[in-house]
């Protein structure tokens, strides 16, 4: 009988560990998202700084080429941003 009670306790412990694993998984997902957010924010900031420089006229040499380059980088950023949003939506919908 004592073994049966012990096994019941062990089963509840395993369920507790399972819930803990899920919580840990959520923690790692949150950390990845926070890192991605920080990286995207930093890139957006860099793009804005470059735009300001272009508008003020700090980038004198080949300004048209620099403008094209900036537009290309912005398009790339927007595309990655959209993909990231889709990925996160997918993650949240299928999360655990």
């Amino acid at each position: 009988m004592s073994w049966l009670f012990f096994l019941i306790l062990l089963l509840i412990n395993m369920l507790a560990f399972y819930a803990y694993r899920k919580l840990s998984l959520m923690r790692s997902l949150s950390q990845i998202q926070a890192e991605v957010e920080l990286e995207m924010q930093s890139r957006a900031h860099q793009l804005l700084v470059r735009r300001d420089q272009l508008e003020v006229g700090l980038v004198k040499e080949a300004s048209e080429q620099a403008d094209e380059q900036w537009k290309g980088d912005l398009a790339e950023y927007m595309e990655e941003f959209e993909q990231e949003a889709l990925l996160r939506a997918k993650q949240r919908l299928t999360r655990i």
Partner: peptide
Amino acid sequence: IFLLYKFHNLLRQSV
């Protein structure tokens, strides 16, 4: 532990 997980999940909070 289950409630910790469930509340974080339902309220969409980073752990």
